[in-house]
Every structure is written in C-alpha cells, then in structure tokens.
Write a protein that binds this DNA or RNA. Structure first.
Lengths: 203, 203, 203, 203
DNA sequence: CATGAATGAGTCTTCATTCAT
DNA sequence: GATGAATGAAGACTCATTCAT
C-alpha cells in the first residue's frame, strides 16, 4: 500500500521502491542497480528523475512531510494546553503510522542521514514537534519527555516487532499500546511543575 | 577513555579505533583503510588480527558484554520488586554510559547490525533486561514501558545531543535527566495493575 | 560577436554556443546537455539539427572555411613575391582573428580533431596556405618558417594570454606584436637563398 | 625507448604507458582500463600507485622536469648575452627532444591540462625559460619571439610530422631545421633594440 | 520543431580481501 | 606481527543517442 504510485508515474514508483529498500537494507547497502532492477528500468532512468542518490531521499522526505507539517501548523495556531499536547501526540502517531517506512529509515540510518542534508528537512520538523509538545516555559526534563514520547511512537511502529516467545503481538495492538505509553509520558509535562526532579520523586 | 587498550596490544587498539569510527561515520562508510591509517598500520595488519571486517564488529560486541551480563545475573538472583526494577534501570544506565559508543553504533547502524548477526548477542541481552524490568505477570504495556525506559537512557546518551537554541546541555545533565525520566516511566510498572489504560489515567 | 547567428535560427545558435564551450572546456569535456542548457532547449533538440556530436564540429568547421579559402584563392592567382608572402600572412591573421575561437579549438583539441576527420578539411587549407607562403623552390627551412609564422599568429590569439607579473597585455597589442614577429619570420623566405644555415647567420 | 621503466617497477611502467596513450589519444579519451590492460594489470592496481587519474599526469610531469630544471638553473647563474640566449634554446631543444611525448601531450590537451593543476608545474617552467631567453629590459616583441622560438622547437618535434607529397622528412632533419629557425627568431632579441616595430621594418 | 523519458555503454573510483615476503 | 602489491567486484554517476508523441 504505497503512498506514491498514483499512476504509472515512474518518479513516484522510484520513491516507493527506494524507501522500501532503504528501510529494509539500509541506505548504503541499497544500490541504485537494485532499485532500478526491481522497477524494471535502467540505472540511468533513475538519473533522469533524480540528480543523485541522496536526491532520492530528499524526494522521499518531501513527499511525506505533509502530515507532520499539518500537525505542526495546527499546533502553532493554538495555545498550549494538556489537551493540545495529547492531541499532537495522537496526530503524530497517526501521521507516522502511515509513514513508518520513512521513520524506520531515519532511525536506523542515522550516519547516512546525518550527512545527507535531506536529514535536515526531517529533523527540523521533529524539533518543531517536540517544541510544540513540551510547551512554553518547560524544563529540560519536559523536553526529554517530549522526545521520548515520540520515540515511543516509533518503537511501537518497528522496534517492538521482533519479540521472542509468546510476546508476539499484532501491529495494531503494539501501536495502540505505544500511543498510550506515549501519552502517559507527556502527562508529566505541565507548565507549572517546571522542576523535573521534584516531579520525578513527588509521587 | 577507551574500553579496550589495556596493554599496548594492537588488537585492542583496533577495536577501539574501529568503534570510534563506526559510531561516528557508520559501519558502511568506515573503510578499513581509515582504521588502519588512524592506527598507523597497514590494512593488511588488520587482517592479521581479524579475519574480516564483520569480525571486528563481533570483537567489539564481545568486549562489551560484561557489564550488562552482570546486571542481568544480579537481577535474576532477586525477586522482582519496584526497588529491583529501579536499580536495574540505574545499572543499565551506568553500564551504557561507559559504552555509549557501542550503543550508538548499535542504534544507528541497525541495517548493518541486522545482517551481521552480531546483533543477536546484543539483542538477547536487551530482551533479558527488558524482561527483568517488566517483572512477572505484567501487561504488554509494561513491556513497552520497559523498552522505552531503556530507550530513554540511550536517548540521553546520544540522541538529545544536537539541539538548537539555548537548549544545549552538558552531557552529564542530559544523562541525569534521561535517567529520571526513565525511572518515571518504569514507575507505572506494577504486577497488580495489569490494565494499561487505567494506569494511564488514574493519576 | 558570434560568427553564426545571422538570423534567430537555432542551428546557427547551436554552432555558436558549441564552439564557445568546446574552445573553453575542450570537446570531450563539453556535454550536449551543457550546450542545450545554455541554449534553453533540450538535448533532443540538438539531434533535430545535427545527427551526432561530431556533426556539430563538422558544422563549425564548414562555417569557417570561407575566409581562408578566399585568401588561398587570392594567393593562387598571383605569382610569388615577398609582398604576396607578407600579404598572405596578414590576410591569414585577419581571417583568424575573427575565428580565434575555432582556431583555439583546433589547436587545443588535436586528439579529438584527429579522429573526427573533420580536421582533414582544416588541415588541407593550412597546408595550402603554408605552401603559398613558402613559395616555389624553397627549402625545408622555408617551410618551417611558414609554419611557424602561422603558429605565431595563433600564439598571439590565445597562447600568450596567461602571463604573470606586469607582462599582461591587451589582446589587440598581443595580436599586433604577433603579426610583426610573424612577418619578421617569413622575411627570411626567399626563393634564392635556399640554404637555411647561411640565411641564419648572414644578417 | 621509454624514460621510465628502469626495472619491473610497476609505477614507472604505468607512467610510461600512460604518457604514450595520453599523447596518442588524448587525456580524456584514454581510460584507465586501457592503461591497465596494456600493462596486464587491473585498474585497481593503478590506484595503488596513484590516487587519481590526474595524479598520473602529475607523476609524468615530475618525472620529466629534470632536464628543463637544469637548463633553467644553468641559465640563472649567468648574465644574459646573445650566446646564453642561443645556448638556452639549444638546451631546451635537447631536453625536449627526449621528452617529445610529454610536450605533445601538453600542447594537444590544453583543456585537460588547464584544469589538471599538474599543468601549473609545467607552465611555470616554460615561463621561467621564456624569461631567461628574452633577457632583461626586453620588449613585448622580444617576449613573443622567445615564446615562438620554443614553439618552433615543439613544431619540429610533432607538428611538422604529417606532411603530404614529397615533403616527408626524417625526424632528425625536422628537428635540426626547427632548431635553426628558432635560433634565427631569437637572434632579433637584443637588449638595446627594445623597439620591436623598428626591428621589424628596419631591414 | 521540439520534448520527455529512457537506454547501454562506459567512466573514475573505492573497498574488502589475499598472499608472498 | 606486519607490509607491499595486487585483485575482483561493485558503486555512483555521465554521456551520446533514440524514439514516440
């Protein structure tokens, strides 16, 4: 169920296949030949549509930024409140669920992403999101909470997958559980209780 | 402050330099020439000590098992209790702080790690750790909490590094904040309260 | 001040831009994409006007034959004399000054020109010119003098350009100086004095 | 009769074969595969000895600079005089005769040489040579004469080769003729007669 | 007249690996 | 313990060229 591929549109198919392979095998290990082969075209065809290999990544990021951008725009128009905070987490989770491939790619290919300058696009968005969630006048601990909450969403999407024994769990359940834990984490974020240490021990 | 290099022996120096470069630039992007150059030896010398590049990774992993193994052994001898749970998180944090390079490498090079089956060794330990922390008869949510808590420790070690504006923060503070948030997260884990949803709203 | 481009017609503009780039960057290093880009058309458009890249070169050569051909025709109608000799050198200089781009291209891209057999056309003309200048019954030295005289004209056009220190010199002066040195050189050519050695020392 | 190849020394053999191919087919048209094939080694072997393709050119230039450097050093120790001037031309001719391959390469591959920054090494030497020959307080015309004299030497080495009809001429004779014409040209260079225009018309 | 899409052959370069010494 | 020399496989990228529209 790819996001791109609206039609026979080669460019979109490239993005699709590339993301698939990048997130499975990693950016470095995925060669343009592989992408081309799987699409039934030549490497040179990829270069007709994208100037370089990392331009493909840029293409993927751009083609997927819409939902996060919306969540950010939506959040910026409203004053911070616990409800806003939770809703942002939920919207993030929704947006990411459909984009888990991209997310996984970003998480698991940090070294490549760091120097890909396509990474910057994505990181900006994450930072904006974190800031909206933590709200104004919050402590560093609150920032950590916000970051970890988003991380938790991600964990639900792909890090909890490979479980042993009887802990196997359908994807939907995993994601639901992750969302709840994420909400649980951000719950501690409150404009008043700025001192994280107290918050951590007061219960 | 390298972990290896107890004596001047080359093998250990290779592991040291390799880990450093792997965690900075990624496994794929780090060539044996680079490692050799930084050590002032030839590529061929590396092959005297390690059969393949993968083998270097395996060497690194083995060299770091000790501290987690100890924490696991320590935990297994004791019955679960909130105090044990917290202590395990703290020990994990301590162990990881000293090995943050390896940790970062593992987190950021999943694709390489996955196919290197060197990851298996490490993953087993992580799973064991998670299990000890979540305790017996716990819910899936508890599992998520345990996983995320360890993730939080890691976040404190290297994911919160690149911050914008005035949010820059010394490493020690970051790690302390992360530890507290991690403890906060596992706090919800209680053998009795198996239903995550209630737990999330009851405070 | 392009040679081609009499009307807005594309074919001529292609020749113009191609010559410019060929003489700046060399034949091999200039891609059709570059030519097309600078013209604001697509590569495929070039193929409407020229069958191959080589064909563009051939087009350029043909478009420049006229002035030398005229000088040659003019020279053939007259009996050799020192005045004719000098006048041929002057006419050559005039003709080349207007085509210095092409000349430079020919001089600096010999390997490409050689295998393009487009060079043949040009070389024939040069040989004819040399022969007219050296006149009948002349020595091999005279031939060398004739060749070097033409070479000197060319040197004035583009080889003396990159000078250090205060030797920088406006193009017009460079060309004037070159012309005079060229005339100086051919002055030694005289049907009678066939022995170069004597000629070289008799002054 | 290659200059390198003192023994089975691969590095030297590479320089040899490379220069041969570069001067025959041009720098751009000569692929590393060709060089490697003709040597019976792999492309990768070339990269063991040279970091890049243009590093090979640098290697060639360096390996051939000795004779010109000697001529320059010799000339710098002496005050200018017509005899010095002529002797420099002769020494240049001698040095170049043995290096005609390199010379041809430089002449015919200007576009490549220009951006190869290996060209700088060579050009510096040529400029120094020109300066020594033209002597102090000389006119711009004198400079042109000096440049053209060296050019004449080069012409004798490879530009007069492809002659039609009965003008074919053994290499040694060609070079001898060229040397004499070159000497003839520099003869006009005299510290006193600084005004080139007079010189050109006074005869 | 011209373009958009694609190809096939080839380029330089890098890398992990090997082996005789 | 280590080096110097070399290899084979592969990688990203470029280019001239083609052709249906």
């Amino acid at each position: 169920m790819s996001i791109h591929t609206p039609r026979g549109d080669t460019r979109a198919r490239i993005l699709d296949v590339a993301l698939e392979l990048f997130s499975e095998q990693g950016y470095e290990k995925t060669s343009l030949r592989e992408i081309a082969d799987r699409l039934g075209v030549t490497k040179a065809a990829l270069y007709y549509h994208f100037k370089t290999k990392d331009d493909i990544v840029r293409g993927i990021v751009e083609s997927m930024s819409a939902p996060i951008d919306e969540a950010i725009a939506w959040g910026r128009e409203r004053p911070w409140s616990p409800e806003l905070r939770d809703e942002l987490v939920r919207r993030f989770a929704d947006g990411m669920t459909a984009r888990s491939g991209l997310l996984r790619f970003f998480h698991e290919n940090q070294p490549a992403v760091r120097e890909l300058n396509a990474g910057a696009l994505f990181k900006e968005r994450m930072i904006a999101m974190v800031q909206l969630i933590q709200g104004p006048e919050s402590s560093y601990q609150d920032r950590v909470r916000a970051v970890v909450a988003l991380l938790t969403i991600n964990a639900g999407l792909f890090m909890l997958q490979e479980e042993p024994e009887g802990h196997q769990c359908p994807a939907a359940d995993r994601q639901a559980a992750a969302l709840e834990v994420a909400l649980e984490i951000v719950q501690r974020i409150t404009p008043e209780a700025t001192d994280g240490k107290d918050a951590a021990t007061e219960v």
